[in-house]
Design a protein around this nucleic acid. Structure first.
Length: 421
RNA sequence: GGAGAGGUGGCCGAGCGGUCGAAGGCGGCGGUCUUGAAAACCGCUGAGCGAAAGCUCCGGGGGUUCGAAUCCCUCCCUCUCCGCCA
């Protein structure tokens, strides 16, 4: 959520940001609704002032019949105005929620992959003297995934992990947790469900046609799409000590995605699924520190994939492709030899600086020691490992001519095996 | 799931129809004292909206009343005990 005052006082700045996102948002309508809301609020304030004045004037004595009548009259005029205010506020709020975050100045304008900036590449895709298999074929060869049985038991885009795939998943989790720990993160295993309000605060709308997450019938709960939701909710409605910042959390959870709208998109196997495990990095920072923290999260992500010897490139997303809460997003795209014709890069992590967008909605502030007043913190998130896509890159990059897979060194102590097949 | 107790400012905690945006303490800020620091003492110190006047907020929502942190209803949450269970 953006600050209404910012929209009001620096309309051009907001307009320019929306233009770079190519987002169609009617700011003038929002400004008009805000105007109306404030007018109504003033009228109600005036009415209440009169009511308070009357009540205070008769402290400690019995009111006369005339005063009672006057009090009743004032009270009766309020509900209509309040109803109107509520209606206007709800409309305004709904429209305000649709306004995405202000993008950082270095983010390129436009939409689509052509507008991305490739920041750097790391590692060279291996030159193979054999035809590489994709992870689905490798999984079949070694009995690692069972999509058919999962479809029978649960549905499309679910899977059973089998045998070494289970060991690999747990090893990757453990490896990622240790990396996070080394960087000073507090480890958390979070609930897999969260209140709908918290989900909405993080920018995941549990309602409406564009909902990305599952809701629980008859409960005020949703299955989380990412631990970003539960981690972000930790400090909801709190005023933090400035000295406690930055707060670094690393959360392990399952993630559930409806993938509504993604139907028909050609994605095989584990690339796009309804449930997966993920280790997520999260930071609450001082507003002046968030850009530096964003680079740090990216560095940790890169370190993780360098350790796994998976070639990748880092891209900075263009404004039009950012999620609504994000002011800047870097994706790591891993080289996937089995993807497309002759291999291609596929998204494997994503880290975003959401600045104060989520903090405003979740009401997470810190006390500024200079002024003594509360300010919104900045909130950032980044994938450590997503246990759907990381195995894809791992299996495909480390496959051998005979179809066996070499487990990269840092994972062996956790997995207890050094190869599959 | 059942019974009871409770949810108040950054934190702890009083208040139980008007004198309450809220005692007291802790913490924080400023000062006196001190070579400096600590201790002691004095003062200031909740948040939001609004250009301002002012208005709102004592878990959420609703009600009673001229007037509600205080009374009633309801929901949520926490704690204690019981039940169930991995």
């Amino acid at each position: 959520m953006l600050d209404l005052r910012l929209i009001r006082e620096q309309t051009d700045l907001v307009r320019e940001s929306l233009r770079r996102r190519e987002a169609e948002i009617d700011l003038d309508r929002i400004l008009a609704e805000d105007d109306k809301r404030r007018t109504l609020q003033s009228e109600i304030d005036e009415l209440r002032r009169q009511r308070n004045e009357l009540a205070h004037s008769m402290k400690g004595r019995r009111p006369t019949e005339e005063e009672r009548t006057r009090g009743r009259e004032l009270k009766e005029r309020e509900p209509a105005l309040e109803t109107e205010l509520r209606r206007v506020s709800e409309t305004l709020d709904a429209h305000l929620q649709e306004v995405p975050n202000l993008v950082r100045p270095d983010v390129p304008a436009g939409t689509g992959e052509d507008a991305y900036i490739e920041v750097r590449r790391w590692g060279e895709p291996r030159q193979l003297d054999f035809e590489p298999k994709d992870h689905v074929a490798l999984g079949e060869l070694h009995g690692l995934f069972d999509f058919e049985t999962a479809a029978k038991v649960t549905g499309q885009k679910f899977y059973f992990l089998r045998n070494e795939a289970v060991l690999l998943e747990l090893a990757l989790v453990r490896y990622a947790l240790d990396r996070a720990l080394a960087h000073g993160f507090t480890l958390l295993q979070t609930p897999d469900l969260a209140r709908r309000e918290v989900c909405a605060g993080a920018g995941y709308n549990p309602r409406g046609p564009e909902r990305q997450i599952y809701t629980i019938e008859d409960e005020d709960l949703a299955l989380i799409g990412t631990a970003e939701i539960t981690l972000g909710g930790i400090h909801q409605n709190e005023i933090l000590d400035a000295e406690s910042l930055p707060l670094l959390y690393c959360g392990l959870s399952h993630c559930f995605r409806t993938e509504a709208g993604a139907a028909g998109r050609a994605t095989k196997g584990l690339y796009r699924v309804h449930q997966f495990t993920k280790v997520e990095l999260f930071a609450f920072t001082h507003p002046d520190e968030s850009d530096a923290m964003h680079e740090k999260l990216l560095t940790i992500e890169e370190e993780i994939f360098q350790g796994l010897e998976i070639p990748y490139r880092v891209v900075k997303l263009c404004a039009g492709d950012l999620g609504a809460p994000s002011a800047r997003t870097y994706d790591i795209e891993a080289w996937m030899p089995g993807r497309g014709e002759g291999g291609s890069y596929g998204e494997i992590t994503s880290t975003s600086n959401c600045t104060d967008y989520q903090a405003r909605r979740l009401n997470i502030r810190f006390r500024d020691p200079g002024t003594g007043r509360p300010r919104f913190v900045h909130m950032l998130n980044g994938t450590a490992v997503a246990l759907s896509r990381t195995p894809i890159a791992l299996l495909e990059n480390h496959q051998q001519a005979d179809g066996s897979i070499v487990i990269p060194e840092p994972l062996r102590q956790y997995a207890g095996i050094d190869r599959i097949g």
